[in-house]
Each structure stands twice: as C-alpha cells, then as structure tokens.
Design a protein around this nucleic acid. Structure first.
Length: 608
RNA sequence: GGAGCCGUAGUUAAGCUGGUUAUAACGCCGGCCUGUCACGCCGGAGGCCGCGAGUUCGAGUCUCGUCGGCUCCGCCA
C-alpha cells in the first residue's frame, strides 16, 4: 500500500449517455416538503459540486432554479463512483427520491431548500469545457466576454429571469389587446426607404439591380393602410430597425408594441394604453400603477424639468428667472436667452470638488459653466456671483425659488436649449447621487401638446417632431401654413421614471390636410407623390379617422427588471459599434454574392 | 464626427515616483475528506501585461498611434 495513490483519469466515467426514454418530472424550482418521498427525475446543468469523498452534493440548475441532489455510496456505490467525474456545467439527469434534509440542514436561501434528492440512477447527458467565466450572478464579467459567449451568459439566473419577465410581458399584452378585439397583423420587413427620420438599413435587390429595400424604422405607414383597409384595431409586436449610433437604451434593431385604432380620439387611445401598461405591470412584477396617469404638457415639462421625459420619482424642479436678470449688472445673465435655476434642498453641504464635477457634467451639454449659491444656516448667501446681484434681484430670486437655509441654487444661463438640457440632466444626476430615488417606485406620466414641427438649422426647414403623418390640433390646422412654428400636435408620449416608453398620435386622415403638412415640411407635390404616393391614394378612398401608439418593449422590460442596459433584455444584442461578438456579424461576403447583387465595393481611399 | 473611462493568469482585480523572478482571490488539475450548500484541508499547473512604435541603461508603469469594450455629446420622425 503506497502512501500516495496514483493520479487518476476520470474519462472512463465520462461516457455520454442517451436519454433512453427518461422524462423530466419537475423543474429545479418545484420540489418542496409537499413532494416528500416522491420518485422524481430531474435534468439540468451542474452549478456547484461539493465532493466530500463520501457524500457528493450537486446543485442542479435549469432556467427556473436550483435543487440539491445527493450521491451516497451506501445507496448506490456504482453511481456514486461515477459521480466523482462530474464537473460544473455538465448536463446530467438523475432519478431519485425526494427526502427532507436532516434537522437544521435546510437552506433558507433556496426555494427548494427544505428537500434534497437521493440519487438512485444517474445519466451523464453531456460534458462541458470549463466555462470562460463562472455562471453566477455575483461575478461581474466583462461585456466583451459575455457577448462572445452569450449562450453561457444567458444561463445566469439574473439574465434568464429577464427573459421570463419579457415573455410574461409579451403574453400579457397579447391577451389584453386580443380581449379588446385587436388583430395581430404582420407587415413587411423588406419595404421602402423612408426619407424622413433615422438612417435606414438597406437590402439590395438581386432581381432589380441597383435598387434597394429598406428595413422598417417602424410599420407606421402599413398600420395606417390597415386602418384604411377597415381592420379597425391592429397590433403587432414587431422588430424595427434604425441605423443610428447606439446607447445604453438603444439598439439598431429593437421591438415595438405597435398599435393603431380607428374612430378614436386621444382620450380613448390613452385610456386603452394606460390600462394595457397597468395590466402589464400587474401581471409581470405584481406592481399596481396609479389608477390614472397624470398629464403634463410638453411646455410644462420643459419649464419645470428641462426635458420632455421628466423623471417624477423625485421633485427637484427648475425655475426660470430670465426676467429677474433682464437688466442686471451681471452681464452674463442679462445677455442670455434664458436664465434658469434649480434649487436643491439641503444641497449646501456639497463640496467644491463635487460642484467642480457637476460643472464638468453640464459642459457635456454645451454649458459654459455652473454658477451656484449656497444658503448657509445663518441665512447668508455664499457664492462667487452674488456680489454682482442687486438687492432687488436677490430678493426676487429668494422669493421665486423659495430658497431655505441649507439649500444650494444651481444656475444655467445661455441658449434655452442648452440651459434646459444642462439643468434637466444635472437634476437626474444629482437625484441619483444624493439618493433621492427610491427603489421599486414607478412614476408614469403622459406628456401632451408637443410642437408639431421643429426648425432644422442644418436643413433650413421645418421637420416633423413626431412624424409627417401626425395631425395638428384642430385650432392650429388652419394656421399651419402661415404659422408652422407654433402648431401643436395631437401627439402624446408615455414616460415612466424618465424613460420615454411609448409615443403616438392622431394621424392625418384626409388628403387635403396631408398636403398642407407636406407643404409645411417643404415637401413639394412631386416629391410627396414619389415617396408617399400610396398614402395619398389611400387617404382618398375613405380613410377613417385613426391614430395609435407604439411602445418600446425593450425599454419597458428594462424598467420592469431594473436593468441598466438594454442589452440585458435582448437575447443577442449588439455592441456599441453595432457588431455581434458571438456571430462576428457584420462580415465581408464572397465576391460572387456581391456580383449577384450588382454591387461593387468602392476602393478605400488613402485619406479615409 | 467628438469626449471620457477601461484593457495585467481561465475570471475578477492589485501592481506606488520607471528598477531583481509580475501579486492575490476565485476557477482549473491531482490528493484527502459522509451533511455540504460560494464545503473544507494539502499540493500543482497556469502570463504576448490588447497590439505597434517611441523615450530610456531599463517600460505592465511614461508618450504617440492603433484595435476592442463601455458611458456620454451629436444623431435617434
């Protein structure tokens, strides 16, 4: 008998077996004391192995959860011997008896923690290489590795959970809309390029050399066609494609819950959409949203929050003070298009270093600086700028902001666009850093009365803020041609916690009004006919009044799952450079494929 | 198009003002272990410091470039 045994090769125990008729009886989150003494068959992946030499414990994992299984040499020596070879992520099937864990050995952290499975029979269904990263939630893994091995990343419980919720959400929406008589109708993915809006993804046509389809940015015009067709109520959970730069909440392909209804007005659509979202929250994460969502005009949102998608979970507000400083001796303020201030209660404790960081933060939005006033506990104002203010200005400022000792005021002066963006985003950043946002709180709000058009400086014309098929409000339809800048749209966005989750409008449904709209956008009749001829035709043949809304499903799931990135709610997402690290898409294609499509690649210029 | 952060064993990180053989934890491999549950104990293997130039007697460390990931601005009807 040698003191040290020879090193062992376990490969003889790693023979892969066939299921041979075995049937799984339960998922790994199901078994509790209620199943005591049942004979069960479980299958899944090995999460952890705790090999005591004698007893071997395995945590068996599937989509739903974990169950502890025990190999005991006294129960079945041959099975126990083979179990030494099991490693993490091996796929196994076991048959055994459900039994209680010994006194005091229950694991309260596991749903199945009261029981364990005493293994009688065991099959190795597949082995696994050691995974490139552990399949666990508590380990933070680099995004590049996660995306390359996405199929392993998706095994992690926290990510798998997101897709269970996503499925519940999609089913909830389908049930709800079906119950109201909506028809799910599919629309083309190979369609026509839409000139307004985002960049299109193009698909070359082999049979029509030199011509291209575009992938839809949304099924907007098709759903309007379906209303003209008399479909009455349409919906679709549908992929949309926009070739723009990515963000934490933006992917080049994303999913919309697309909805359109005939014979309706804003209130009907909003009621329907509100109930849908309330039902969705209830049926996915068991949260009751407010019975009625508050409404806020675009103008009020910009005035009080600086953005058109206010986060109402905390109540910091902006105050405009342009008028107070109109004739001020402080020329920076007096000469600015807009002077706005945000009062932060108890903000006087912020350090110079922190204020410097916020100054850098607002510079991102084009701000030239961040002026501030601290109100000390004795009521005196501490600030690099207050010495330039008159007594009257100080008094008015105090009165309008309602400032209290211990507060800080942050100022932005400059173009309205920059002042609003800087303070509006600073507001959210501050709330997060100061811990003003309570977890698990959801604050929905409707934003209404958007401007119909926006002036595009680069194109030197008005462009549609929503899209060119949005109706103006009745009072402004008549003046649209003469006063396009002041027209309000029959459009509405749903915002939850500062995220725009949905938006829609009442559409134009007569050719006359559509012509006025195109004219306001600088689209002449010839161009309109070429690009939107089918729409103009359709509107001539008895288009009913109609309108709709579209929700970003991915963003909704982000909110439901508290995900920081849209990638965590999309099974196979793309990187910020719009590549897929798993498939290596996009990639070069063989020359023959290009020739079939009548495409020749341009030589890369040296200066490129 | 632009700004910022990051890139060191399989993974997550440390590595100071440039200085001997690049650390740790987890994981991996082997041994021991019958109540563990992120088991424990003993031993072992494992590195193109993203890549390329440059500065220097000497670069993981400094500079420039480049590739990749992330966050943001522009863009996203």
């Amino acid at each position: 008998m040698s003191e040290h045994q020879e090193e062992r090769d376990y490969d003889e125990f790693r023979v892969i077996e066939d299921l041979a008729g075995w049937r799984r009886t339960h998922h790994n989150n199901e078994l509790t004391a209620a199943n005591m003494d049942e004979t069960v068959c479980l299958m899944g992946w090995v999460q952890f192995r705790r090999d005591h030499g004698g007893l071997i414990f395995l945590d068996l994992r599937d989509r739903e959860g974990l169950t502890q299984v025990v190999f005991n040499p006294e129960d079945n020596a041959e099975v126990h011997e083979r179990a030494h070879a099991i490693r993490p992520e091996y796929v196994i099937a076991i048959k055994g008896r459900v039994r209680p864990r010994p006194e005091g050995m229950a694991n309260k952290n596991m749903v199945t923690g009261e029981v364990e499975i005493e293994v009688d029979e065991y099959k190795l269904l597949n082995t696994s290489d050691t995974p490139p990263f552990p399949i666990e939630d508590r380990v933070e893994v680099g995004e590049n590795l996660r995306l390359k091995y996405r199929f392993l990343d998706l095994r992690r419980p926290s990510l798998a959970k997101n897709f269970i919720i996503r499925n519940k959400a999609a089913q909830s929406v389908r049930r709800y809309l079906d119950s109201l008589g909506f028809l799910e109708v599919e629309t083309p993915v190979l369609t026509k390029s839409t000139p307004e809006g985002a960049r299109d993804f193009l698909v070359p046509s082999r049979v029509n050399p030199g011509e291209f389809y575009a992938l839809p940015q949304s099924p907007q015009l098709f759903k309007q066609m379906l209303m003209v067709s008399g479909m009455d109520r349409y919906f679709q959970i549908v992929k949309c494609f926009r070739d723009e730069d990515l963000r934490a909440d933006r992917q080049p392909e994303f999913t919309q819950i697309d909805i359109e209804m005939s014979f309706i007005d804003e209130a009907l659509i909003q009621d329907m959409a509100e109930t849908m979202i309330k039902t969705l929250f209830r049926e996915t994460i068991e949260v009751e949203l407010p019975a009625e969502f508050p409404r806020m005009t675009f103008g009020d949102a910009m005035r009080d929050y600086g953005v058109d998608k206010p986060d109402l979970r905390f109540d910091l507000k902006l105050t405009e003070v342009t008028d107070i400083f109109a004739d001020s001796g402080f020329k920076v303020f007096a000469s600015s298009e807009m002077v706005k201030v945000m009062r932060v209660p108890d903000g006087a404790s912020l350090s110079r270093k922190e204020i410097d960081e916020y100054t850098k933060f607002v510079e991102i939005y084009g701000s030239k600086g961040l002026a501030w006033i601290k109100i000390k506990e004795d009521g005196t104002w501490q600030s690099p700028i207050v010495k330039f203010f008159s007594e009257d200005e100080v008094a008015k400022l105090g009165e309008r902001t309602g400032v209290q000792p211990g507060d800080i005021l942050f100022f932005q002066a400059g173009p309205a666009v920059i002042a609003n963006a800087a303070l509006g985003n600073l507001r959210c950043s501050l709330a997060e850093r100061l811990g003003l946002i309570e977890e698990g709180v959801f604050k929905p709000v409707w934003i209404t009365d958007f401007p119909l058009l926006e002036y595009d400086v680069e194109e030197k014309r008005y462009v549609a803020r929503h899209h060119p098929f949005t109706s103006a409000q009745p009072e402004q339809m008549a003046t649209l041609a003469s006063d396009p800048g002041n027209a309000l749209a029959r459009a509405y966005d749903m915002v939850i916690n500062g995220h725009e989750v949905g938006g829609g409008s009442i559409r134009i449904h007569t050719p006359e009004q559509q012509k006025i709209m195109f004219a306001a956008l600088g689209i002449d009749e010839e161009e309109a006919r070429e690009k939107f001829g089918f729409l103009m035709d359709a509107l001539k043949f008895g288009a009913p009044p109609h309108g709709g809304i579209a929700f970003g499903l991915d963003r909704l799931i982000m909110i439901l799952t508290a995900s920081k990135s849209i990638r965590d709610v999309i099974a196979f997402p793309k990187t910020q450079k719009a590549t897929c690290l798993m498939t290596q898409a996009p990639s070069a294609v063989p020359g023959k494929q290009l020739r079939d499509l009548s495409i020749r690649l341009r030589e890369k210029k040296k200066e490129d």
